[in-house]
Design a protein around this nucleic acid. Structure first.
Lengths: 134, 134
DNA sequence: ATGCGTGTATTATCACAGTAATACACGAGG
DNA sequence: CCTCGTGTATTACTGTGATAATACACGCAT
């Protein structure tokens, strides 16, 4: 059963997008697979301390994007095929890197300088995240 | 006289923030210095094809953040000192890289993989940006 | 002095995100 | 059977970003 407890919400981005992104991440990490059940709308709302209607909006999006299926009132399940996996991977990696590169180039950072900065700051961001596989 | 003609607006972020960011970039690039004049609110609105009130909102922000000064109805000018420059540089580089790293680590990308991806995609993003200094 | 462009302020409208309070049909489990 | 949780839908309200149409005081140039 997929959980939303770990998810920290920011105030910049729409909450329902952040919730959907969380599910996409879990899929990409292999921690959510076809057939895995999701908590009910009301349960997720409680976990994230947000309104059930906002959760419903996230489900509407996830169903439209194809990786969540809902049958009657029996709850929702994950669905992933190769095409969906690729789409998600593309969004979460290629798009992420591309937008980062664009921002970096807009302030004239050189490739070398970017690698320096990423090197310097990489481990600082992992301090609360030790013990993962390299 | 600083211009806003080159600036392309996206639909994700608030327009007044994008306008302010544009000015910050010009400061960081050395293309806007203390004393440089900015176009009038109405002129910028025309350049960006947006509402003058939205521009005024950007000016309110830029004045609050300290790098734009406005005197009476004589227009606005850039103001940069060392402290402001550092703040802007920090926001546009350190924060950019840090948030990128966080996103990358959320999907378990390794440092090595990130450098690979940035290497692969770096030049593709410069195709319309040739001839800059390394 | 008289315009005119300036910065500034006010009011209104619209769309979207989010919250809130319900309502209802369905289906499993007591 | 019947309750309970489910997904779904509706209505209303709030705050914010953006647009729109004005209004006004100031200062410079004609």
């Amino acid at each position: 059963m997929l959980s939303f407890y770990g998810l920290k919400l920011n105030t910049r981005d729409p909450v329902y997008l952040q919730a959907a992104l969380h599910v996409k991440r879990q899929i990409l990490l292999g921690e959510a697979q076809s057939g895995d059940r999701l908590p009910s709308r009301r349960e997720i709302a409680a976990q994230l301390q947000i309104n059930p209607n906002t959760v419903q909006k996230a489900f509407k999006l996830m169903e439209d994007e194809g990786y969540v299926h809902t049958v009657g009132n029996q709850g929702s399940v994950i669905y992933v095929d190769e095409q969906i996996r690729e789409t998600i991977e593309n969004e979460l990696t290629h798009e992420l890197v591309t937008e980062f590169i664009q921002s970096a180039q807009e302030i004239n950072l050189s490739f070398k300088r970017v690698v320096e900065l990423v090197s310097e700051l990489w481990d600082r961001e992992r301090e609360d995240d030790a013990g993962r596989k390299e």
